[in-house]
């Protein structure tokens, strides 16, 4: 099996409230997997189950083909949504303490810390207390704490909330680097742009149920509607539209253009291909713009959730 993390029919209830209902997910090795869902969907509950903070009522979780066990904690790096550090503890001491809790020896932790402090150019913070640092600085430390023990699985719960743009970019680059070095990354977020940007796979959770999951590109193919965005210059717009109507569905749209053209979203019916559309367009005017409309993750998210409402 090439999956690092597998969850099978995981359920969790808090009293009468169902937080997760029969969730199954497979996270391939060395991928970036995004768990999407509105607030309260059950993302954090699922992540806490992987971290063994909460136990599932039913269902099983495997990490690297082994049933989840206590010692797996050292293979997981977790950046929770609610995150912070001891304010009155010195940076170096604090990171060493947290690294040792993850199973590193003191000497090894020190060595790796030096590396990270140089990589993020924060070497002179060792003896500072967290309360003396700015928020952005503390965020860097928090990130180091998460990755220092070189986990196989990195879990980020809303990683970019609270980070300033500079740090967010830095963290994003580091996440990609870690993936290239062999780590698998699990994202939980309700910010669609970051999924669009980073994730290879995604799962959508809504009200404790999984609505869809799979490769991001595959999902997008499923959701595309064979619609093309077209910018075309024609002689008589009304005449052209009448002709177009006979063969295709269309609606007017708007996008930024330097030309004075007709801007349309044209949907191809099943009998046709995009080449048929192009040929038709070429016969009637000058094409400035031709692009397939690929649904954004955000579109898919809203569409799926409203269709289940």
């Amino acid at each position: 099996m090439n999956n690092l993390l597998v969850a099978e029919n995981v359920s969790k209830k808090y009293g009468d409230f169902t937080a997760l209902n029969q969730l199954s997910i497979e996270v391939p090795k060395q991928s970036i997997f995004g768990i999407l869902g509105p607030n309260g969907a059950g993302k954090t509950t699922f992540i806490r189950i992987i971290n063994q903070i909460t136990m599932p009522d039913t269902g099983k979780v495997w990490l690297d083909n082994e049933p989840l066990q206590a010692h797996h904690i050292q293979y997981i790096g977790y950046l929770p949504e609610e995150r912070g550090l001891y304010k009155s503890m010195k940076v170096g001491e604090q990171v060493l303490y947290l690294a040792q809790l993850k199973g590193l020896s003191k000497a090894e932790a020190k060595k790796r810390l030096k590396f990270w402090f140089e990589r993020l150019e924060i070497g002179d913070w060792w003896n500072k207390k967290i309360q003396e640092l700015s928020k952005g600085m503390a965020q860097k430390i928090q990130f180091i704490v998460t990755v220092l023990h070189r986990p196989k699985l990195l879990i980020f719960d809303e990683p970019f909330s609270g980070f300033d743009p500079v740090n967010a970019n830095l963290i994003r680059d580091e996440i990609l680097k870690l993936r290239d070095e062999g780590a698998t990354i699990l994202f939980s977020t309700h910010r669609m742009e970051s999924v669009e940007e980073l994730c290879d796979y995604m799962a959508l959770i809504h009200k404790s149920n999984k609505l869809l999951d799979g490769k991001v590109s595959t999902i997008k193919k499923q959701f595309k509607s064979n619609t093309y965005e077209v910018g075309i210059e024609v002689g008589e717009a009304a005449v052209f539209k009448n002709l177009l109507q006979e063969k295709f569905q269309f609606e007017e749209t708007f996008f930024h253009s330097i030309h004075h053209d007709l801007q349309l979203n044209i949907k191809i019916k099943e009998a046709h291909t995009q080449n048929d559309l192009l040929q038709f367009l070429m016969a009637h005017g000058r094409i400035n713009h031709f692009k397939e409309v690929i649904p954004s993750v955000s579109d898919i998210f809203i569409k799926t959730i409203t269709s289940h409402a």
């Binding site: 063994q52 903070i53 997981i76 977790y78 929770p80 995150r83 001891y86 304010k87 947290l98 704490v145």
Partner: peptide, 13 residues
């Protein structure tokens, strides 16, 4: 300080 979740992802409460 919101550090609690970081810690209990490493040790049992």
């Amino acid at each position: 300080n919101r550090i609690i979740e970081v810690i209990i992802s490493s040790v049992k409460p």
